[in-house]
């Protein structure tokens, strides 16, 4: 290479070849990357109200597990997944709905009556009846459906369930 501003035919050809190769690489590379990462780039939306049953089905002061099944299309396959929530009726009208997913690594917690606690089978986490962490690794209390994500309509408890 010389310092002169004139480039020789050879250098020009070299440059053009490298640029050309780069162009092909980019034209296939970018769509290729989007193609590979596509599932992560898709926003999966969708909310539905799920009814958990009439209020009087639930015993006061004892969390009850309610499960429901939703099917979704993942790629070309329809999968039915089961989800669970704990419904705790605190008084005649006051209801709290917890997600049954442990806030640590999303294992499913169970209500153990003797201990009066939600116990996670994976890493021995425990939550009290209000969902607060009693022990173990979880970083925060159990998630609740509250505010605009839960309502009682005609005596039936409903939660706004986010799909995805």
């Amino acid at each position: 290479m010389t310092d002169s501003h004139h480039i020789s035919r050879r250098d020009f050809i070299k440059l053009a070849t490298i640029v050309g190769g780069g162009v092909i690489g980019t034209i296939i590379g970018i769509p290729g990357l989007v193609y590979l990462l596509d599932p992560a780039l898709k926003s999966e939306q969708g909310e539905t109200w799920i009814s958990l049953g009439p209020l009087e089905n639930f015993e006061i002061g004892k969390p009850t597990l309610v499960t429901f099944v939703r099917s979704r299309v993942n790629g070309w396959e329809k999968t039915s997944s089961s989800y669970g929530v704990f419904v705790l009726r605190k008084s005649e009208t006051d209801v709290v709905v917890f997600s049954n997913l442990c806030t640590h690594l999303h294992c499913r917690v169970n209500w153990v009556e003797e201990k009066r606690a939600f116990v996670c089978p994976c890493h021995d986490a425990a939550f009290d009846i209000d969902g607060n962490v009693l022990g173990g690794p979880p970083p925060r209390p159990l998630d609740r459906y509250e505010g605009e994500h839960a309502k009682i309509e005609d005596g039936v408890i409903k939660i706004l369930f986010k799909e995805g």
Binding site: P31, G32, V34, Y35, D38, G75, W76
Partner: peptide
């Protein structure tokens, strides 16, 4: 393959 063609971005191109 139908999913590649219609469900994945740029699947039709690849």
């Amino acid at each position: 393959i139908q999913y590649i063609m219609t469900g994945v971005r740029f699947g039709w191109l690849i």
